[in-house]
Every structure is written in structure tokens, then in C-alpha cells.
């Protein structure tokens, strides 16, 4: 693992160039350019806000705003990563460099977009007059999410080289993941399933095995002052994100030698 980090650090100039490349080409030839990073989630928030009101489901706007923006980062990585390797066939076949940089550069480029959109969220929270919560939790949440996004991206990008099914399945999986995560609803909704405290405890625990659930709790606690989630719910999310990242690196390193053969 240390060797991988060392290899990448030795070629950090290339990593920076790849990140810049990804940022540049994402909104190339679109007149609104980078604004789409903000417009996309804002339009989605509007759609859900209207839709949820019609369904008479009560969700506070700040919850929806943080949910959608945070989800957007993962969604972009899920959408881009199947293409990370097969979209750079020429590079993979004709140039030697740590292949891990391709998905990594996508995750980092999306992270930069995400940071910019977070600024907008912070401004929104200020303007809406919501109280900030424990801002110290924000770095924890950010790092954990990068690890999670990287792990998932590494797995998807390498598997898609061998099984193109991945790119077709990913849209559905992403939608399912979206709905089991409290993005457009409040995490406390889970407590309405059962009144039994024991059942509630286990349901909550299961709910938080989805790392995005714990992550959202951290973000909402940091940004909009929702009560900090219990440690026994957050720690599994953080640990699982780390494990996904490790699994991603392992899977990727195992398969990368055969990329050039398959493409």
C-alpha cells in the first residue's frame, strides 16, 4: 500500500494534469460551463421539493439541500468511473504510468467541483439563517466520503474493463442506493417503522451500515446543526468507507495488469 502511494507521489505532476484535464473537459463546449455543477443539484432540489410537497412528505429544505449536494459527489463518481479506464484506452495501451491515477483523478476532479458546491451550501445556510453545527465534523465527513468514492470508483472502473455489464447496471444500483440513503428524507424516518426501542436500535444500526447514511448525518450535523449522530452509528460508516477504499485498491491492483490486454 505504501508503495502505491509512493508511486503516485512520484508522478504527482501527472495526477495534477489529469485532474485539470478532467475539470476542463467536463463542461467543455457548454455555455454555462462550471455553473452546471451548481445548477444540476439546484434543479434537482427544486424538483424534489415540489414533488415531496405534493406527496405531503415533510422535509426541511436545509436537509434536502445538504442531502442532494452531498449525494451529487457520489453520483458523479458513480457515473464517471465506469469510463475511467475504457474511456482512456489509448493511454492505457500506449503509455506507462500508475493506472490508479485515472479513477483517482476523476474522484479528485469531482471533489474539487464538490468543494465549490459546498461553498454555495454554506452561503445558503448563512442566508437562510440556519445555525452552523459542529464544523469540526466537516473534514471527517469530507475525507470519509473521498475514501468511499475512491473505493467505489476503483471497483467500478476496473470491473467495467472485463464486464461491460457494469455500466448498464450502475444506473439502477445508483438509484437504489439513493433511496435507501436519507438524501431526500430525514434519517429519523427509520424510527417510524417500529415503536419498539430494541428494534429501533437494530434498524438504525443496519441503516447506518450504508456509509452514506452516516456521512449525511455528519454533514448535516456540521452544516445545519442537526444533533450529532451517535458514535455507534457513525463509526461503522467511517470504517466501512475505509474498507471499501481498501477493497477498491486491492481489486484494482489485482486487475490492472490485464487492462491493456483486454482493451
Amino acid at each position: 500500500m505504501m508503495r502505491i502511494v509512493k508511486d503516485i507521489m512520484a508522478r504527482r505532476e501527472l495526477l495534477v494534469m489529469l485532474v485539470i484535464r478532467n475539470l476542463k473537459i467536463r463542461y467543455k463546449d457548454s455555455s454555462l460551463g462550471f455553473l452546471w455543477t451548481l445548477l444540476g443539484p439546484i434543479l434537482m432540489i427544486l424538483i424534489y421539493a415540489v414533488f415531496l410537497r405534493i406527496l405531503r412528505i415533510e422535509v426541511a429544505l436545509p436537509v434536502l439541500v445538504t442531502g442532494i449536494f452531498v449525494w451529487q459527489y457520489l453520483a458523479m463518481c458513480l457515473g464517471d468511473s465506469p469510463n475511467a479506464i475504457i474511456g482512456s484506452t489509448n493511454l492505457v495501451k500506449k503509455a506507462a504510468f500508475p493506472r490508479l491515477m485515472l479513477p483517482l483523478s476523476i474522484v479528485l476532479a469531482n471533489f474539487i467541483n464538490f468543494l465549490f458546491s459546498m461553498v454555495v451550501v454554506v452561503v445558503y445556510v448563512r442566508v437562510a439563517g440556519e445555525p452552523f453545527g459542529q464544523l469540526a465534523l466537516l473534514p471527517v465527513a469530507l475525507i470519509t466520503q473521498v475514501a468511499l468514492c475512491l473505493g467505489v470508483s476503483l471497483i467500478l472502473s476496473s470491473l467495467n474493463v472485463f464486464f461491460r455489464d457494469v455500466q448498464h447496471v450502475i444506473g439502477l444500483l445508483s438509484m437504489a442506493w439513493f433511496f435507501v440513503t436519507p438524501v431526500i428524507y430525514d434519517a429519523s424516518l427509520i424510527n417510524k417503522v417500529s415503536a419498539n426501542p430494541d428494534t429501533q436500535f437494530w434498524l438504525n444500526f443496519l441503516f447506518h451500515l450504508n456509509p452514506m447514511t452516516g456521512l449525511l448525518a455528519l454533514y448535516r450535523s456540521a452544516l445545519i446543526g442537526l444533533p450529532a449522530p451517535a458514535l455507534y452509528l457513525v463509526i461503522p460508516s467511517v470504517v466501512i468507507s475505509g474498507l471499501v477504499c481498501l477493497a477498491g485498491v486491492t481489486v484494482f491492483m489485482k486487475f490492472q495488469g490485464r487492462f491493456a490486454d483486454e482493451l
Binding site: 484535464r21 476542463k24 473537459i25 495501451k93 503509455a95
Partner: peptide, 11 residues
Amino acid sequence: LELGAGFHPDL
């Protein structure tokens, strides 16, 4: 191995 490998058309 190939001239211009890694060139991105949009850059």
C-alpha cells in the same frame, strides 16, 4: 508506441 497517444481532442 503511437504518436499523440494521450492527446485529448478537446484540449
